[in-house]
Design a binder for these strands. Structure first.
Lengths: 333, 333
DNA sequence: CGTGCGATTGAAGCTACTCAATTCTTGTGG
DNA sequence: CCACAAGAATTGAGTAGCTTCAATCGCACG
């Protein structure tokens, strides 16, 4: 591989084991890292983990090399921040192609890199001292593309960090014994995902899945705690976010407990109509609506038809447009 | 009044208006304050509010003087921390009696004063520097008795502070349109009440009512923010408390949305069995159980009878004893 | 020792769920 | 660009599970 890459104009540095590889990466800061998963001593996951804890090496694209025979935990790798997997046997062309697409994608993500910086900067609005410090703290954040329906993390996974959604839409949900899923959050750009799990324990308490193709930025666990401890503004924002969230959940709890599905669905529609880009027209699956309101998807269909005939909403294809916002709000039980 | 009190061995200081009264109180730190509600310029509520913001004057017993004719907002007064009301016309004996009971009660509450200090100290466990500072911060907290069924605060009231429950039991709930109430929290000694409302906005988002006679300690708004800003340990504890709370609420939401009332009630019973002093035997009204599980109280009765015949619980009078903890946990939908 | 509130039980009715069939959308391959 | 298939949405029928209303019972408190 070293030879092939050298012929093609790449400059290659080698390390004979995991520990030396980490040291080399920290010293030389390469443009990309290729790393085997199965290694004696420190394995690939550990290498990745270590490099991601350091802000100077966290943003370097990281590609795992793995054998077909090995049972590879792709999910684990993706979650802790691997960018790609190269499965042996692969020929020279495949190798080069993989690296090229990786570099190409990195370029695309640069745009979002700036965006994530702006979002994070917002957190410290008004705080002059230490802003330079924040820059170095957040310099090492990792930007990741998530395809539609791809899982960001599963309930029970180790909470590796906090996700900042830059583009797209991500839902978090829990699954009940009977297989129904309840949507807990529907995140839009600039929202934080997994904050509560990160702050309360070691593992995620819900599953996060991309509703549409999305771009997220992963802030590693340590970085988040650093931010909270060193930046009072961020601290305050997080506290405020959590406290507001609790109030909202209390309201939802009340709704779930004592209101008809009609009312619940109307509230869900209103909740959706605020944050989304086009405030009155949006596309969402019945399944998802059902998950948000805690009802069966068939019932959603029925009620939406009722709402339509009552002139509250309009259906444009599978899109929904809210017509009578006021009357929807005043919905009786 | 000055004359009567003087004859009876009290030393009395007078102020001609609200502003001067505040200054005098701050300067002389009296053992008790008598204050009219209706006054030109600064009214009694404002006086009380100002004095409660200062830790040196916050703990001084405060008694309002009011006319029968005046429409007095007793609730508002009690909530912002008044200890008693003297309604004119009153004779000398009534005046003296009121003051004596006030001083007597203060003495009783001294015991709880120490207890509240210990609770607060727990928050800073492990933090050595600045503990002395904390002592002065929390020195001015106010201890209050709340009788059974008395309201601590109503939903919508201005969030004047955080309550630390020292003794008794307090429930927080919201009321649905159809009149049903949903219990959001059942606090036992050492719990904080109203934290989320305080941190997220100006007003309480739920109602708090004493289930049994209780003793609470009011930490004024400013004091709480001071504590959060200056004591990283407290900050961390609060963040952790909130994050855990969110996770718990998510679980409840899931339960409410997709589980049978049987399962919901079983979970509620389990939830009750952990924090209470006697872990397996407790007394709670059907109404309250219904409020926690979000179901009708009649249904609670029915299900409890079922549980009993299935050997899961036992009813001793109106008390409930959990027999088969394990089977209750594994309850199918 | 009575009284009143809370708990229990019964009966009836309705909401929203499940299962199943049909129609509509969307994405894919030729 | 169209046809087709797979999945999503809608509609229908039947029913379980809870709620509501109402009557009776029993415990706890003064």
């Amino acid at each position: 591989m070293t030879r092939v890459l050298g012929f093609n104009g790449y400059m290659v540095l080698q390390a004979e084991n995991g520990r030396k590889g980490v040291e080399l990466a920290q010293l030389k800061k390469p443009d990309l890292i290729l790393c085997a998963i199965m290694m004696p001593g420190m394995d690939g996951y550990e290498v990745l983990n270590l490099l991601h804890k350091q802000s100077e090496t966290a943003h370097i694209p990281f590609v795992f090399l793995t054998d077909t025979a090995e049972q590879t935990d792709f999910r684990k790798g993706t979650e802790i921040g691997a960018d790609d997997f190269l499965v042996k046997p692969f020929d020279d062309l495949e190798l080069l192609h993989a690296l090229e697409t990786r570099f190409y994608k990195k370029e695309i993500l640069e745009h979002y890199y700036i965006k994530s910086f702006l979002s994070l900067e917002k957190l410290t609005a008004g705080n002059k001292n230490g802003k330079a410090g924040l820059k170095t703290v957040i310099a090492g954040r990792k930007i990741k593309q998530v395809k539609k329906k791809q899982i960001l993390y599963y309930e029970g996974d180790e909470a590796s960090g906090l996700y900042l959604l830059l583009d797209g839409c991500i839902k978090t949900f829990k699954i009940a014994d009977n297989g129904h899923e309840l949507l807990l959050g529907l995140s839009t750009p600039d929202d934080y995902i997994g904050l509560y799990s990160l702050l309360s324990s070691e593992s995620y308490s819900e599953t996060a899945e991309a509703v549409t193709d999305s771009i997220v930025c992963l802030l590693p666990r340590e970085m988040v705690f650093d931010m909270i401890n060193h930046y009072p503004d961020i601290n305050r924002q997080f506290i405020h976010m959590m406290a507001s969230n609790i109030r909202e959940k209390d309201n939802q709890l009340l709704l779930m407990a004592y209101n008809s599905v009609r009312k619940r669905l109307s509230q869900v529609l209103l909740r959706l109509s605020t944050p989304l880009s086009n405030p009155l027209l949006f596309k969402i699956s019945r399944e998802e609506l059902a998950g948000m309101a805690g009802i069966a998807s068939e019932t959603v269909s029925r009620i939406l038809t009722d709402f339509k005939s009552e002139g509250l909403i309009e259906r444009v294809g599978t899109h929904i447009r809210i017509i009578d916002h006021a009357r929807l709000k005043k919905m009786k039980d």
